[in-house]
Amino acid sequence: MGGYILKRLLSAIPVLLGITVIVFLIMAMIPGDPATAILGSYATPENVARLNRFLGLDEPLWRQYFIWLGNMLQGDFGRSFALNRPVLDEILDRFSATLILAGTAFVLCALLGVIAGTISAARQYGFADKAITFVVILGISVPSFFLGMMMILIFAVQLRWFPVSGMYSIWGGGDLPDLIRHLTMPAIALSVVATGVVARLSRGAMLEVLRQDFIRTARAKGVHERRVIWGHALRAAMVSIIPVLGIQAGFVLSGAVYIEMVFQWPGVGRMLVDAILKRDILLVQGGVVFIAACYVGFNIVVDVAQAWLDPRIKT
């Protein structure tokens, strides 16, 4: 197992380098130069040239890349000109908020999705299956930002159960119960689509597994049906569900951008959208690389979980 983890960690290095290359090239293709964006369109050419030199933008592209990469490896992601603070500080502040939101939503979608999908498969064509299938179709069809808006309208404005937006109350609060009150609606809104997708795929994976010969073997041994479903079948189905969970984590992280907009959640997604609209390139670059790196890390965890579950992988 240790060997497999090490192998998997090493194989992430080229992926991470590839990510930095892709991000750097995309950002280099952005039309217009940042100096003009910083100084405004009335800047004199001399000032623009000076700033370009100061930012290292007059170097050849490949040198710029290595300088940027080298700085990043030392923890220097540059400074955001729009916010006038180090990019990394801003990202770390914002990322913890996103992590709380997306992490909660991910746990919700994984648990609810797998359970719903398993029940649905075990009761194929029964009432529970039809009800779950209907809810799932509804769930994967509703735009999360629209769902969030409707939740605000109903549960915050009309019923006043939850606060409209933000992460903590401005007055007082700031403790865990306060966070949970603020977190509930956005986390649910964010998890709905992913739950639907996970439930559908879990149902499909379970149906596939339930037809396998080894399920018949388990029944022929006299194993209780509940254990056949939740033990034998689900365990085998997890082999194809876990990679889906890995992909869904990316979708939850992506969906967080919308939810953060709707609920004014101070996360990294809103930061990125603002940065793009303001052409704050260093912040976009740093943010994208940071999130992608975290996602790569998460996928290593997924792969290790997969290998732990399926002994056939480690050969």
């Binding site: 990510i19 892709i22 950002m27 952005i30 984590a249 992280l253 990125l272 976009v284 994208v288 996602y295």
Partner: peptide
């Protein structure tokens, strides 16, 4: 695989950032 290492919206945002 490299492209799939990005949560999809990051890539979409980056492309929109380039193209406007």
């Amino acid at each position: 695989d490299m492209l799939m290492a990005f949560p999809y919206i990051l890539l979409a945002l980056a492309i929109v950032a380039v193209l406007g």
